[in-house]
Computed example of a mutant assay.
Amino acid sequence: MPQHVYIESIGLLGPGLNDWAQARAVLAGRVPYAHAPTDLPPPAGLPAAERRRTGPTVRLALGVGQQAVAASGCDAAQLPAIFASSSADGFNFHAICEALAEPDPLMSPTRFHNSVHNATAGYWSIASGAMRTSNVLCAMDGSLGAGLLECVLQASADAESCLLIAYDTGYPEPLHSFRPIPDPFGVALVVTPQPTSRSVARIGVALTHAPATVMPEAALETLRTSAPAARVLPLLAAIARGETGSVVLDYLDGLRIEAEVAEVAEVAGIGGNARA
């Protein structure tokens, strides 16, 4: 049986997608999609020393997380968080490999502490003042699915709101040829166990073997498959169109996630805010 929760707000950054308000019009088909480089904002909330140490992965994750929290009725400092990414900071990893290949290898402490997969969660806690628990997940191309399942189940089991931040950035060559992620893409969802006046949709998740839902527009389908976090696009498109139905998201080989989507007004009697 699907596990149901409510999406309170959405943050989004990707190529040609600058935030949820702009992306919603594109995904609903009201505005044509136009590819453009992902615009990563400065990492707001960090002290100057920490800002200087951040790379594109931290800027992406903080950017979408701060969008989602700002649009919600939640306090970032009080939100448990799930971070999901198929890798850490690829450009930082590349720089470490270059340093280690030198005749006299020297490792920068900043490079080292930014190399761990949970570095983004640490920067988030500094920027938001968050003292709640955070889980940091990696499941290669299934990372978005793993994060979504964890967030939905945690919000339901603990009966409290939870923040999901899923994000992927790429690598420079030569690693780019083996793991091509052409553009940074990140999404954040504030998930609540009960509906509120801000809720944009109710979702229920369950495992399935059905094929994944594809995007009807070729450019958006290319984007969907370009980064693990972008596998969320069919779910976001259904929310943007105010649909009631189900979409199937990529997860693991042979196993996917079926997400039931409904407007909140239809299931909870909260009027007219599902597309806000």
Rank of each mutant, 00 (worst) to 15 (best):
E8Q: 05
I10F: 01
G14D: 10
G16Y: 08
Q22R: 11
L27A: 08
G29T: 06
V31D: 06
P32N: 14
Y33R: 13
A34G: 09
T38G: 15
P41I: 13
G45V: 07
A49F: 14
T54D: 06
P56V: 01
L60M: 09
G63T: 04
Q67D: 03
Q67S: 02
V69C: 09
A71Y: 00
S72Q: 12
L79F: 06
P80D: 04
P80A: 08
A84H: 00
S85C: 07
S85V: 01
D89A: 10
N92T: 14
A95N: 09
A95C: 03
A99S: 15
L100Q: 07
E102K: 14
P103Y: 13
M107V: 11
P109K: 02
T110C: 05
H113V: 09
N114M: 11
S115N: 07
V116P: 00
A119D: 01
Y123G: 00
Y123V: 00
A127S: 10
G129S: 10
M131E: 15
R132L: 13
N135M: 12
V136F: 05
L144S: 02
G145Q: 10
L149R: 10
S156D: 13
L164V: 10
A166Q: 07
Y167W: 11
H176V: 03
F178Q: 15
I181L: 15
P182I: 13
D183G: 12
P184E: 05
F185Y: 11
V187D: 04
T196R: 09
S197P: 07
V205N: 05
V205S: 07
T208W: 05
A210V: 04
P211S: 15
A218M: 10
L220C: 09
R224K: 15
A227C: 11
P228E: 05
P228S: 13
A230G: 02
R241E: 08
G242M: 01
V247Y: 04
L255F: 01
V261W: 01
V264M: 03
V267L: 09
I270P: 00
G271D: 10
A274Y: 02
